[in-house]
Write a protein that binds this DNA or RNA. Structure first.
Lengths: 209, 209
DNA sequence: TCCATTTTTGAATTTTTATTCAATTTTTGA
DNA sequence: TCAAAAATTGAATAAAAATTCAAAAATGGA
């Protein structure tokens, strides 16, 4: 992954990753304001001051965490979009990708879900903006797929942006529910239901005009 | 509304409401942690200490605000549910009710949307729990409508709980988008789109099997 | 081994605000 | 009009935690 780096640099990055991983657990459990640098340091087995050699401060640590993980998913999703699939195929494979990623990294998404909606930061903070941009980019990519589907006559004539919102809404809702619940079931297993609601709707076929 | 109260009590309640209204604006603009009691007091034209005669503290002020507003919507929704309408009719009228309420009270919903997802409180805080319970109750009521729709053969055979989640997901997504955007368009105008996606799905009818 | 350089440390400092409370102002009822 | 009661005030207090930094420890090359 990291090529052409000397040992020093590699070790630095490893320690940095260790801190991020400790922070992930603490933030997931207590939220941004509920977590202290002391606790994160303790968990990462560093002195409090050391964290400041790796990150500018608490906010920087927090957003680095989010930014890197979101970047990772984004890259995966983009790769999926580049494959030669039908619009429905793309949406389906993106959905599975997301759900399994989230399922694998529950701690992180507890943070992400709970903060995507924090306006103060999303709007004012430089770091917050960066994260929000990635969400917007995802939404645009999705919109593009929708537009393609409409052009091919596979989807209804409807504002593709509205379609994209509808889709992420359904997904988020199931993710939220899964994260809130004590974690008994598989998130990925909800994919067919999500696809079904979004593509076919819930109205009974018997009644269809 | 307040019947049989003496002037003292009425005046007290008016002042309390004034404070809540000032708090609503401050919290909506800066979030819970970004807002100070000083600023709320100043905006409400009271001394800082006075707020503590009306509320136990900052958290109490915050949750009172949320709890009262959510209670108001909940009552309206319940009334709508008691009317004799078809399942689709109920869902549609609830949707319009919600959207117009949110549109009318944008400041408040900026707070609500951004905090429904704060786990620490929702789960640990006594006041937070109360608010969360109302959301759960709404979800259950919705589930009941879905179940009814299935029984009447109007909706597909599908877990009614999943249906309810799908629906609130789509709604939330449009609400979120509306709150984030600089407020050019009408939220209520999105209702038909929401109904359409949820009931009919986005797949083109031409292609339908 | 030695010492210069880098890294780590955690106690001390600083900042920020929620909350308190003694003093002041307003209201009340006689 | 007046004094007791109620309400308001905002400066002072207290608590919490982010950040800093001088000292200590670890590292690396000669």
């Amino acid at each position: 992954m990291e090529r052409g780096l000397n040992r020093k640099r590699r070790e630095y990055l490893t320690r940095r990753a260790d801190i991020l991983s400790a922070a992930e657990k603490v933030f997931a459990a207590k939220g941004f304001f509920g977590s202290t640098m002391d606790e994160i340091a303790k968990r990462a087995e560093f002195g409090t001051g050391s964290l400041y050699k790796y990150f500018r401060g608490k906010k920087d640590l927090y957003f680095s965490l989010i930014d890197e993980k979101v970047g990772e998913v984004t890259r995966l999703l983009r790769a999926e979009l580049d494959k030669d699939l039908s619009p429905i195929g793309k949406i389906e494979s993106m959905l599975y990708l997301q759900l399994s990623f989230i399922q694998r990294d529950r701690d992180f998404f507890k943070i992400y879900v709970s903060d995507r909606t924090r306006f103060e930061w999303t709007i004012k903070d430089e770091l917050g903006k960066r994260v929000h941009k990635k969400f917007i980019a995802y939404l645009s990519a999705l919109e593009e797929v929708m537009r393609d589907g409409i052009e091919r006559g596979q989807f209804k004539e409807m504002d593709p942006r509205d379609m994209a919102h509808g889709f992420v809404g359904i997904v988020n809702s199931f993710v939220f529910e899964w994260i809130m619940s004590p974690g008994a079931y598989s998130l990925v297993s909800k994919a067919p239901t999500i696809m079904n609601i979004f593509f076919e709707g819930v109205r009974s076929l018997k009644e269809r005009r």
